[in-house]
């Protein structure tokens, strides 16, 4: 019968329309500004810099090695290393800018950073009236605490913390072992002295 297909289709539409009042499967939207869908564990938007302890300046994990600046595909990171009074580089960024109007949220900076210093944020409500300054995030706007990192990516942050702690413990052990080795060597040398003398 001509029109059968249309009627069948209309039935489908009606089912969806009525269903949208009762079945959450059929009504999947949320009232956005009032309601938010919780962000996923892995969600990413723009990068931020992690700092430990309570100090957003000295606590920054970033050592300004510039690996991320080199690898960033659209070249939107800009880093200047800090120098002390004598001009000796100290492992700390003086300038760390990310131009988020260029950044394409690819996460490559996070992947290549060997110090777990840069991570992805989930914040997306970043609209600005000032195209020039407002979207060029500087170091102070980028720095966020480790607690914040734990809040947005709890699983990943726990992993990173465990790894860092592990590395630290290993490094300390190494130092200890070195010290111990030096001590024993010294002792041995001292013990050997009288014989030599």
């Amino acid at each position: 019968m001509l029109g059968e297909g249309i009627i069948k289709g209309m039935a489908e539409t009606a089912r969806n329309f009525i269903g949208s009042y009762s079945d959450p499967e059929r009504l999947v939207t949320v009232q956005y500004p009032e309601e938010h869908i919780p962000a996923k564990q892995n969600a990413r938007n723009f990068p931020f810099l992690v700092f430990d302890v309570e100090d957003p300046v000295a606590g920054l994990r970033c050592v300004a090695c510039k690996i991320c600046e080199k690898e960033c595909p659209p070249q939107c990171i800009y880093i200047v290393m800090d120098r002390d009074d004598k001009g000796k580089p100290c492992k700390h960024p003086k300038v760390f800018d990310i131009d988020v109007s260029v950044c394409m949220s690819c996460q490559i900076c996070v992947e290549v950073c060997p110090f777990d210093a840069i991570k992805m944020d989930t914040e997306f409500e970043l609209s600005e009236t000032n195209r020039y300054g407002g979207l060029l995030l500087t170091k102070d706007r980028l720095s966020k605490s480790n607690e914040y990192y734990h809040k947005i990516h709890s699983v990943e942050a726990a992993e990173v913390d465990a790894r860092l702690a592990d590395e630290k413990a290993k490094a300390e052990e190494k130092v200890k072992a070195k010290l111990a080795a030096a001590a024993t060597a010294k002792a041995a040398a001292q013990a050997a002295k009288p014989v030599a003398g």
Binding site: L2, G3, E4, G5, I6, K8, G9, A11, E12, T13, R15, N16, E25
Partner: peptide
Amino acid sequence: DNFPKFLEEFDNLLSGNEILM
């Protein structure tokens, strides 16, 4: 597992539609 249900719906909605044909 839920996708076939939707595909069937889609099929009902469009495939036999005389205007579309």
